[in-house]
Deep mutational scan, measured.
Amino acid sequence: EIRVRVEKDPELGFSISGGVGGRGNPFRPDDDGIFVTRVQPEGPASKLLQPGDKIIQANGYSFINIEHGQAVSLLKTFQNTVELIIVREV
């Protein structure tokens, strides 16, 4: 597990896919977790996150067994800083 802090400027600078009942993700199709799919170059998350990172927690909210829409809404709700716990396959 890796813990990262992303400062919104003005957005977080990454996209996610997956989630329960979602269209899945390109990295682990059998896993309904939330995965980072795109990281904006030079964006707030560019040095912190990589495509394929699985987000398991954001600001204390579990991202395990969460629906895609709910994950997106939560990330939009947070002000300024988001603390993520991620799992990265090496």
Score class of each variant (00 low, 15 high):
37 T>I: 09
86 I>R: 02
5 R>L: 15
39 V>H: 01
41 P>N: 09
88 R>P: 04
9 D>N: 11
37 T>Q: 09
17 S>R: 06
89 E>S: 09
52 G>S: 04
2 I>R: 06
85 I>L: 14
57 Q>S: 15
88 R>A: 02
12 L>F: 14
47 K>L: 08
27 F>N: 06
5 R>P: 02
41 P>M: 08
45 A>T: 11
30 D>E: 11
89 E>D: 08
55 I>H: 03
85 I>T: 14
9 D>V: 07
71 A>F: 01
90 V>K: 15
4 V>A: 02
2 I>P: 00
3 R>H: 08
26 P>S: 09
42 E>H: 14
80 N>V: 08
20 V>N: 08
24 G>S: 08
5 R>W: 10
84 L>F: 13
29 P>D: 14
84 L>G: 01
26 P>V: 07
68 H>F: 15
87 V>I: 11
89 E>N: 15
50 Q>T: 10
6 V>N: 02
20 V>E: 07
6 V>R: 00
36 V>I: 10
82 V>D: 02
30 D>A: 11
18 G>H: 04
7 E>G: 07
59 N>K: 01
16 I>H: 00
47 K>Q: 15
50 Q>F: 13
19 G>A: 05
79 Q>E: 15
54 K>S: 03
29 P>C: 08
59 N>F: 01
3 R>K: 13
83 E>H: 06
56 I>A: 06
41 P>C: 07
34 I>G: 03
49 L>R: 00
1 E>F: 06
12 L>P: 05
56 I>K: 09
12 L>S: 04
80 N>C: 09
74 L>A: 07
73 S>D: 14
38 R>H: 15
45 A>Y: 03
27 F>T: 09
70 Q>R: 15
90 V>Q: 06
73 S>E: 15
83 E>I: 04
56 I>L: 10
67 E>I: 06
11 E>C: 13
21 G>V: 06
30 D>C: 11
42 E>Q: 13
89 E>G: 13
74 L>H: 09
60 G>R: 06
40 Q>V: 14
83 E>Y: 04
53 D>P: 01
80 N>M: 09
75 L>R: 03
47 K>N: 12
50 Q>I: 14
35 F>K: 01
66 I>L: 10
69 G>T: 14
45 A>V: 07
20 V>T: 14
77 T>N: 14
23 R>H: 12
21 G>W: 06
27 F>L: 10
87 V>F: 14
69 G>F: 12
69 G>N: 15
60 G>F: 03
22 G>F: 07
67 E>C: 12
82 V>I: 11
4 V>I: 10
10 P>K: 08
31 D>Q: 07
52 G>K: 04
63 F>V: 00
72 V>T: 13
38 R>C: 13
28 R>F: 13
39 V>T: 05
64 I>T: 12
78 F>K: 06
10 P>G: 05
15 S>C: 09
26 P>K: 08
72 V>E: 13
25 N>I: 06
58 A>P: 01
45 A>D: 05
35 F>L: 04
32 D>T: 15
1 E>D: 05
1 E>G: 06
6 V>F: 13
66 I>Q: 03
39 V>I: 07
60 G>N: 15
26 P>W: 08
10 P>Q: 10
78 F>E: 10
39 V>A: 02
31 D>S: 09
15 S>F: 10
76 K>L: 08
25 N>S: 08
41 P>D: 15
52 G>D: 01
14 F>H: 05
83 E>W: 05
29 P>Y: 14
12 L>E: 05
69 G>C: 12
36 V>F: 02
68 H>Y: 12
81 T>N: 09
9 D>K: 14
61 Y>R: 13
55 I>A: 00
65 N>P: 04
43 G>S: 12
22 G>E: 08
54 K>D: 02
15 S>W: 07
36 V>Q: 00
19 G>V: 04
43 G>N: 06
21 G>Q: 06
63 F>E: 02
59 N>Y: 02
47 K>T: 10
67 E>F: 07
12 L>K: 03
72 V>S: 11
79 Q>N: 13
84 L>V: 05
77 T>Y: 09
48 L>Q: 08
7 E>N: 14
52 G>W: 05
55 I>R: 02
63 F>S: 01
4 V>H: 05
51 P>K: 11
30 D>L: 11
75 L>A: 01
75 L>E: 00
62 S>C: 09
59 N>I: 01
56 I>D: 02
33 G>A: 07
6 V>Q: 00
52 G>Y: 06
30 D>V: 09
78 F>A: 13
9 D>I: 02
65 N>E: 13
85 I>R: 14
52 G>C: 03
25 N>M: 09
41 P>G: 07
75 L>M: 09
16 I>F: 10
73 S>K: 14
35 F>S: 03
37 T>C: 11
75 L>Q: 02
4 V>F: 05
90 V>W: 15
46 S>C: 15
17 S>C: 15
51 P>F: 06
80 N>A: 10
83 E>V: 04
27 F>D: 14
9 D>A: 15
37 T>K: 11
69 G>L: 09
3 R>C: 12
28 R>M: 08
50 Q>D: 06
85 I>G: 08
85 I>N: 14
70 Q>H: 12
47 K>C: 13
65 N>L: 04
5 R>D: 05
41 P>R: 11
27 F>Q: 09
74 L>M: 15
32 D>E: 13
49 L>F: 03
49 L>S: 02
36 V>C: 02
21 G>F: 07
75 L>K: 00
46 S>Q: 09
77 T>E: 13
13 G>T: 03
21 G>T: 07
86 I>T: 01
70 Q>I: 13
89 E>K: 08
55 I>T: 01
18 G>S: 04
77 T>M: 10
87 V>Q: 15
82 V>G: 01
24 G>T: 10
3 R>W: 07
31 D>P: 05
19 G>M: 03
24 G>H: 08
52 G>N: 04
54 K>A: 03
87 V>S: 14
63 F>N: 01
38 R>K: 15
82 V>E: 00
11 E>G: 10
79 Q>W: 05
88 R>Y: 00
19 G>T: 04
59 N>P: 01
64 I>D: 10
9 D>R: 12
60 G>Y: 04
74 L>Y: 13
57 Q>F: 08
25 N>K: 05
12 L>V: 08
82 V>H: 01
49 L>D: 00
29 P>F: 09
56 I>V: 10
88 R>E: 04
79 Q>Y: 07
34 I>K: 02
7 E>Y: 13
53 D>I: 01
63 F>K: 00
70 Q>F: 12
74 L>R: 08
4 V>Y: 01
77 T>P: 02
7 E>T: 15
65 N>K: 10
81 T>A: 13
69 G>Y: 10
45 A>E: 04
88 R>F: 04
58 A>I: 03
45 A>F: 00
7 E>I: 15
3 R>Y: 15
79 Q>F: 06
89 E>V: 07
50 Q>Y: 12
55 I>F: 02
68 H>D: 05
72 V>A: 14
28 R>Y: 15
24 G>D: 11
44 P>G: 09
16 I>M: 06
21 G>Y: 07
67 E>K: 14
7 E>D: 12
4 V>R: 01
84 L>W: 01
28 R>S: 14
47 K>I: 07
32 D>H: 07
23 R>W: 11
69 G>E: 11
8 K>W: 06
55 I>L: 07
65 N>R: 10
51 P>E: 12
20 V>C: 10
54 K>L: 06
44 P>R: 06
75 L>P: 01
7 E>H: 15
7 E>M: 15
34 I>C: 02
79 Q>I: 13
90 V>D: 15
40 Q>S: 11
39 V>Q: 04
46 S>G: 14
12 L>R: 01
29 P>N: 14
53 D>R: 02
62 S>M: 04
50 Q>E: 11
73 S>L: 08
